[in-house]
Each structure stands twice: as C-alpha cells, then as structure tokens.
Amino acid sequence: MENILEVKNLSKKYTGFELKNISFELPKGMIMGFIGENGAGKTTTIKAILDIIKNYTGEIKVFGLDNRKDDKKIKEDVGVVLDDMFFPEILIPNDINSIMKDTYKNWDSNLYFKYLSDFDLPKNKQIKTFSKGMRKKLEIATALSHHPKLLILDEPTSGLDPIARNEVIDIFQDFIQNEECSILLSSHITTDLEHIADYITFINNGEILLQKTCDELLGKYGIVKCTESEFKKMDKSDFIKYRKTKYEYEVLVENKKEFSKKYGNNTIDKITLEDLMVLMIKGVK
C-alpha cells in the first residue's frame, strides 16, 4: 500500500522536552488517529511535518516528497487545522475566500461557501463574534476547500457539540472514500477516533508508545478487572500494564483470547482508547 505520509526518526530537542525518534507511516485512503496526553508531542510532530518548527532531525516525506525541499508543492495539497492558530479574528469568512483564492491554485470558492452554508456560518461577521464551535467549523471548511489530498488536523473537533462533531466526522469519512486521500487526526476525543480511525499512533513524553490498527487495538486488547489475589497469580509477561484502583486491579492485556485461555475465570472488558491511554500512562508494569 502506497504511503501518503512517512515520518522516520523525527527528533527535536527543547529545554525540558524532547521528541525522540518518532516514526510512522500513513497509507493512502486511511485515517490515523494521533493520541497522547497534553504536552506529549502531538502538535510538535504536526508542526515538524508542516515545517513550522525548525532544527529537527529525521526524514519526513509527504506524497513521497521531502517536506523541506518540496515545501510549496506539498502544501498545495495539504489541508490544515491547527489548534488555536488561524486567521486574525477581525476578518470575516468572505475575506478568507478572497485571500485563499490567491493562495491556493485549487481553491474552490463554491465549495467553501457550500461548507459555510452547511455549517450555518455567516459570511459577513467578524470571526471574533463566532463561538468556539463556529470557529472550528470555519477552520475545517477552510482546510477542505482547496481539494487537498492530505488533511492534517490538530484537535479539529474540540469545542464542537455532538451533532456538529458527527457532521464533521461524516465529512472526514467522505473525504477518504476515493482511497487517494488520507487524514492525520490528533484528538483528545478518543470516541471520535474509535468511529473513524484505521490506525492509532500513541505518543507519550515525546516517544511513540504504540502503533496498531484500530481494529486490532479494540478487538484484541482488553482490560482484566480482578482482585489482588487474582492479580498476584498472573505472570508479568502476560500483561502490558496494570493499575490498582480503590476496589480492584485493572490489567491491560494485549490478547484477550490468549489471556482468557490461560486464566479462564477472569472478566475481560472491551477496551476503549481512553482506557488504553489511562492505563498506558498511569499504569505500571
């Protein structure tokens, strides 16, 4: 399968934080959920892909092209939503159309105004009068209106109500239907990712902790909830991490079926991405 985005050994040092050898690949026609707690390195990785930050090492290829050498060519086909970074708020959506049609070769004003209409956004009101959800919708409309092949979205659904989120997720799913386009989607709202992501990349403290297909994660991984005595009988190699709560032990296992075969009588719950994040970060081995 052809990759639309390849990140190899991406490293970047700041005082007190380091991105360490980040590597992942996003194939065409797929959605990758990029998860991790605040400050884990998601936005830094996205900024490196877009060459917004400097002095990083490693190789980043978008559409098979080097992100630094072929910057302009790449950005013509990338749609971006960055967390809290957008046009100055004294502008109006009509201004954005006027600016973007002289910025992107493929800017489609009709499509942009269709999104504005679908999202019930006014064309002539200053962005500063918009609610957080409306701003997000405007950012998404702007990211989609030059027919990009890759969407890089940092928290695109934060601030949206469940109905708007659902609407936006449908748009994202339509976007990848032709199997030529892909989405890298960083989000804290992990339930959205469970619905649409094909792959999950989990970053923590500047390092990739886990990379799997979403089906594998949600289908194979599980949480065993057990007593202390049951936990003590478990072999350390049979689980990834565990966490002691007030009443029980929560144990993250990589293969529900195999674990069940070996330990039979334990209750194994289906895992959610939120459970996975909490156990991977807060749990111990």
């Binding site: 877009l50 917004i52 910057d71 302009k72 950005k75 971006v80 910025t103 992107y104």
Partner: peptide, 9 residues
C-alpha cells in the same frame, strides 16, 4: 504558525 502551513507562506 498558520501562515507557515500555507504554500510559500
């Protein structure tokens, strides 16, 4: 930051 994500921004 946003303008750096645009072509030749």
């Amino acid at each position: 930051a946003y303008v750096c994500s645009l072509p030749d921004g």
